[in-house]
């Protein structure tokens, strides 16, 4: 997608993109979301309002595969606020593939008790309004959220994202030493920062795990560092 090309973003910026999409969006959750300005990319990073997000999906293809669960937690002033945490399983209205269940550990039964996609996406958009989205490996969350918005509201918005994997990759690339891609996994990076090991992998735990990783990755940056330094 052209709109996600770095050059495009650099030229136009999130705010212009947001205003353009605001005109296209039908009234409802997406319009509400887009009507709140994104954080200023020149603002101080440590003060930014961030929403750490994680999705569990049936696969990697945003068009064919389904969103299974969403977890998120807010982070402001460098503190992860557990009273803002959210975790919800989505009823995809279709049977799950056995080989996938092993990974996400969500059973058909749990799924059937889940909420419809639009309820969960609405909750996510509401929490995300005016914030930067934080994920580990941005492609999944970005593409699945855009696809969901496209299906539900007919518009695929773009939004500012911080990606802990990209931050780690940039660090390793700078060192100019060969590294194994597995070093970029969430668990491996947490271990490198001596963060505790999490065993239960659900969307909320991984969102919290990602937020903690960001705190560890960025705590040594100065108070003057701008938000744009970390945006994708």
């Amino acid at each position: 997608m052209l709109s996600h090309h770095p050059l495009f973003k650099w030229l136009i910026g999130y705010e212009i993109e947001r205003k353009r999409n605001l005109l296209l969006a039908p009234s409802g959750p997406l319009k509400d979301f887009l009507s709140v300005p994104f954080p200023d990319v020149h603002s101080v990073f440590h003060e930014a309002n961030i929403l750490a997000v994680d999705f569990e999906t049936t696969g990697l293809d945003a068009v064919q595969d389904k969103l299974l669960s969403v977890g998120f937690v807010e982070m402001s002033q460098q503190q992860i606020k557990l009273n803002t945490c959210y975790h919800q399983i989505i009823n995809t209205k279709q049977k799950l593939k056995a080989n996938n269940v092993v990974i996400h550990q969500i059973t058909d039964q749990q799924q059937q008790k889940g909420q419809p996609l639009e309820v969960v996406v609405e909750a996510l958009l509401k929490a995300l309004a005016g914030k930067v989205m934080l994920v580990h490996y941005a492609r999944i969350e970005r593409e699945f959220l855009q696809q969901a918005c496209l299906e539900l509201y007919g518009v695929a918005p773009s939004f500012p994202i911080i990606d802990t994997l990209a931050i780690a990759k940039r660090r390793l690339d700078k060192k100019d030493v060969a590294y194994d891609p597995s070093e970029l996994r969430l668990g491996a990076l947490r271990k490198r920062y001596h963060l505790p090991q999490y065993f239960a992998h659900n969307a909320l735990n991984d969102a919290i795990a990602t937020a903690e990783l960001l705190l560890a990755q960025t705590c040594h940056f100065s108070n003057k560092t701008r938000l744009k330094e970390f945006l994708l």
Binding site: Q78, Q79, I80, L82, N83, A211, L215, C219, H220
Partner: peptide, 11 residues
């Protein structure tokens, strides 16, 4: 009580 927790990280 757990929901009342804020997590922070210090160097």
């Amino acid at each position: 009580v757990v929901h009342a927790i804020s997590i922070c990280y210090l160097q």
